[in-house]
Design a binder for these strands. Structure first.
Lengths: 208, 208
DNA sequence: ACAATAAACGAACGTTCGTGCTATTCTCTG
DNA sequence: CAGAGAATAGCACGAACGTTCGTTTATTGT
């Protein structure tokens, strides 16, 4: 239907605006102006600002999954997929998939410390993401690619922190070395828990 | 002057509100209401909302330095001071020095991707903080407490990322293990670059 | 093609926003 | 203790906010 297409184009724009101005700073009037439609026409699609915010979070999540998660799932489970996930996260920020930096990082820091359904939705999305990251790590452990004593939640915490750090250095500080820093932090940590691969063992054995 | 006292109490409240609602969400009317004074009376202290925001950033910085930086400076330079800095950062968030979580983390993610003097002020404060952190690391290196090949800016990036991660896990996710996670991440990293202390060398030598 | 339905519009609502004025009250100081 | 100057209050402003309304224009199914 026509309405669905319009709704989608509204949300595409809303997500971009919100990544810059914040979900609270996102305004119906401004959005309508940018899309050259009436406030009331736009408003009717959602019924309230809060519903618009929730829909924007949902739309942002789809884009996020498309750009960050899905490509990494093509890699074989275990270490390669985990590395791919980290790589695609950094490139997701580097290529400004959301013009204001990572939508969810921004939303997380905007709504922490404030109650409400919007905050709950943001927290839920972040939990989903952290769970996905943790799952990738657990698989790498179960495949024997990393130290079996490794706590997946702990590593997920650390990797996610590096992602936030990269987003911060790149978008606020405009640090040219932002991704270099993040990459080497991640690499050091991952190499630290990696178990020597069969291939490498064979290589070492062959050398003798 | 009476005005100075009033101004200070306004800023104290403004900083708290802004840490929850954001610097943009901070509103003169609401602030005046909470402080039981008139909008215009409050307004006269700053002349514009932007000036209020800048003053709030300044006030938040003073509180931050007081709570995070200054206590750590009492420790001897080098590794002890670096550890103290990390500890006081975590406790600063744990004790909700700002009710909405770290003021500067929130402001950083609110204003990244948006131009203007407020953003510049936030970025400058964060640069100062990162420089201070880096300095503490460099001292530890110069004192011979950590690996001389260590890049201080790199470690500062990583520690700061862990701080953001702790703030996120604690304030948005309400993860009970937030600080445990952050602490062990920090400890692992610091122990990794630490040079064996003289004391420990003596201990090891004595054991033989 | 026509009736039914969906989508978009324009105008207005009451509030709140930041920002000016002008007047009043308070607080220091001589 | 009086007068100068700072601090605060009161009121009004235009603009923007989210929201509601009745109406008009498009799109759809038959």
């Amino acid at each position: 239907m026509k309405g669905d297409r319009t709704r989608q184009s509204i949300l595409d724009r809303a997500v971009d605006v919100a990544s810059v101005e914040g979900l609270e700073g996102l305004t119906i009037g401004r959005l309508a102006e940018e899309l050259k439609m009436s406030k009331s026409g736009l408003f009717a699609h959602f019924g309230s600002k809060e519903e618009l915010q929730l829909a924007a979070i949902e739309a942002a999540s789809l884009r996020y999954i498309d750009v960050v998660v899905r490509p990494a799932l093509k890699k074989p489970r275990g270490y390669p997929r985990l590395v791919a996930l980290c790589r695609s996260w950094l490139s997701y920020v580097q290529h400004s998939v959301f013009p204001g930096g990572c939508f969810f990082a921004a939303a997380s820091f905007e709504f922490d410390g404030r109650p409400g359904v919007v905050r709950d939705a943001v927290a839920a999305q972040m939990s989903d993401w952290m769970a996905a990251l943790e799952r990738a790590i657990r698989m790498a452990r179960d495949e024997g690619h990393v130290d079996p004593k490794l706590d997946p939640a702990q590593l997920a915490f650390e990797l996610n922190a590096f992602f936030f750090g990269a987003n911060f250095s790149f978008n606020l500080q405009h640090d040219a070395k932002a991704f270099e820093r993040a990459r080497s932090a991640i690499e050091l940590r991952l190499e630290g828990v990696r178990t020597p691969s069969l291939k490498r063992r064979h290589q070492r054995a062959a050398r003798r």
